[in-house]
Design a protein around this nucleic acid. Structure first.
Length: 589
DNA sequence: GCCGTTTTCGGCCCGACTGTTTTCAGTCG
């Protein structure tokens, strides 16, 4: 069984134990282990085999045994027992805003509520309001929460979150009484999907700003409105979808502590607070205190310094080794969008793109890029306008002519996004493939084959010396479609052996490779490329989301192909094609 | 269930807001 699946089971065990009223710290141990498992530095089976799993903080003797049992047999009696005691409908109750483990346990014990349907019925009949500890308001909130659940699509994409939050954030930031403001939460950490939007500001008196916030025209409903914090619902992008937005106000001297606190992640915060305690200090969202006096900090960097650490970039704050690396002084110099010199996986109107080759080139130049790779679809992908061999040759001629015109300042590279056929071979014959500057190989068909078949298919493709880089490795569409079944670690391993690069597809619907596997790929020595998969000039802007993934994967400019100057990139593409002295990414840090 | 530069036992992050309470429990982040 894979680590992601095991993490899900441990998380669920923690939740069931919570509803059963188990010791909260024991429950947390399960949630914590799940979180640790989902961002392991290496393949789980490897870590079991070489014993390193036992050294991972948060995984003790008991948890280790459970994980090993799940990984090797796929079963865990303790889990089966918990599941038997807890109908699956009960877990769904946790999604209702305002309902937590305690209330769910109380409702189950008193009214036998075991599903969303039971809950609705009890609330509508007025039975809940009559329970001790519950009242009319709680019952109304439950009914409203049920309606919200039906409407809300849950999480949203990173680009959608930025679009939603920006006008609100600007309104807060430019408020006359606001001193400082920042976007916090998972959005500041740039996670691939976002649950809610968090904004923090400082002011002498937060109340008037909160009052203006809940009165903004975008606000569909006010969930809470106090003197230092307010929560509202904003209309999302799907009809009847709502997204929660929280605003917090603090005094300016509290700002760095609150900024750190509300940026999270929760796991990172807990680890940092433990570190503070170990040094005789106490950290909360307002202050760092020691011996009864506050340690003054002007910025987040000051806060980290007070704990003996360099500033940890927000994207790394997952308690996935960043505190240890900061301590040792081995934090990476993370790549930024300004480090990118060009990009490779882009489409033109020769296949399913909107823009001409010239328009794409102009767009790239005005974005400050020194080169652009055109990788239109290959011949099998008819519905996306895949190019025949004749069209490929015509396109090469056209690109050569354009490059003449551009001179030395800019270059279009001749590429292809070539389909990986069902058997792992490529969609053009070798003599055609050899004419491209580079080949992006992608799966676009036969998604439903077995894990073994898909893995063999993709290993064959990345091992093909004519393949420069693997495109969107899992085929997932965030919030829409899961990855196809594939042993990604085995594919990464094969790519490392063959010297084949892997892309971070920066399209916000994909973000594929994900940060966790990207970090592992780099550690295996795979060179990474950030590609926008642009189908228009504006699609080039998606590169920024790819940079977010790269940063979350601890990548430095040296780990990427498309941070090098044009001449070096051209040389490296040539080297990959001939597989001579393939440049490897940096060593483990 | 995890963990140890006071500890192998006894801690485990902590404050705002809400609702149901007359002093606090539950939820949330």
């Amino acid at each position: 069984m894979e680590s992601a699946h095991i993490a899900q089971i441990l998380d669920e065990m923690g939740t069931i134990l919570e509803i059963q009223g188990e010791n909260p710290f024991r429950c947390r141990a399960y949630h914590n282990a799940a979180q640790v498992l989902s961002s392991l530095p290496a393949d789980l089976s490897e870590m079991i085999a070489d014993g390193t799993l036992a050294d991972v903080p948060g995984i003790g003797e008991t948890m280790h045994a459970k994980i090993v049992q799940l990984a090797t047999t796929g079963h865990l009696p303790a889990y089966d027992k918990l599941r038997k005691a807890m109908p699956s409908g009960i877990l769904a109750l946790l999604k209702v805003p305002g309902l937590g483990p305690k209330k769910i346990k109380a409702l189950r014990d008193a009214l036998k509520i075991e599903s969303l349907a039971d809950l609705r019925e009890a609330a509508q009949s007025g039975a809940i309001a009559r329970q001790k500890g519950f009242g009319a308001k709680t019952e109304a909130n439950i009914l409203e929460g049920l309606a919200f659940l039906e409407k809300s699509g849950g999480r949203i994409l990173l680009n959608e979150a930025l679009l939603l939050v920006t006008p609100i954030f600007e309104a807060v930031r430019q408020h006359a009484r606001v001193i400082r403001a920042e976007i916090c939460g998972s959005l500041r950490r740039r996670t691939e999907t976002i649950g809610d939007l968090d904004i923090l500001f400082s002011a002498e008196d937060p109340a008037p700003i909160l009052k203006d916030f809940v009165g903004l025209p975008q606000v569909a409903k006010v969930l809470a409105h106090g003197t230092t914090k307010a929560s509202v619902l904003l209309p999302g992008f799907k009809s009847d979808q709502y997204v929660q937005c929280d605003l917090r106000g603090v005094e300016d001297r509290q700002f760095p502590f609150a900024l750190h606190y509300f940026t999270g992640s929760k796991a990172h915060n807990i680890a940092i607070r433990r570190r503070a305690l170990a040094r005789g200090l106490s950290l909360n969202e307002y202050a760092l205190t020691g011996n009864g006096s506050e340690v003054a900090c002007r910025t987040e960097a000051d806060l980290f310094e007070a704990l003996g650490l360099p500033e940890i970039p927000a994207e790394l704050r997952e308690d996935a080794g960043e505190i240890e690396a900061a301590e040792k002084g081995t934090l990476p110099h993370l790549v930024t969008v300004r480090d990118l010199t060009g990009t490779f996986h882009c489409h033109s109107d020769w296949s399913d793109g909107e823009a001409t080759l010239e328009q794409m080139a102009d767009g790239a130049r005005s974005a400050g890029l020194a080169y652009l790779g055109i990788a239109d679809h290959s011949r099998s992908l008819r519905m996306a306008g895949g190019l025949t061999i004749e069209q490929v040759r015509d396109q090469w001629t056209r690109i050569d002519a354009l490059n003449e015109k551009f001179g030395r300042g800019f270059r279009l590279f001749k590429g292809t996004e070539c389909d990986i056929l069902a058997d792992g071979t490529l969609d053009y014959p070798d003599e055609v493939l050899e004419g491209f500057d580079y080949v992006v190989a992608s799966v676009h068909s036969h998604f439903r084959m077995s894990r073994e078949e898909m893995t063999a298919r993709m290993i064959r493709a990345v091992s093909n010396p004519r393949v420069t880089m693997l495109g969107h490795p899992t085929g997932r569409l965030l919030l829409v479609r899961d990855s196809y079944a594939v042993d990604l670690d085995a594919v990464i391993e094969a790519a490392a052996r063959a010297g084949t690069m892997i892309e971070i597809n920066a399209n916000p619907h994909r973000l594929d490779l994900d940060a966790v596997h990207c970090r592992r790929a780099r550690q295996k020595g795979v060179r990474i490329v950030i590609n926008p998969d642009a189908h228009s000039v504006s699609g080039l802007q998606d590169l920024t989301y790819g940079v977010s993934v790269a940063r979350r994967a601890w990548l430095s400019p040296a780990d990427l192909l498309n941070t090098a100057p044009l001449e070096k990139v051209a040389r490296q593409l040539q080297q990959v094609r001939t597989r001579r002295g393939t440049a490897r990414a940096g060593r483990d840090r």
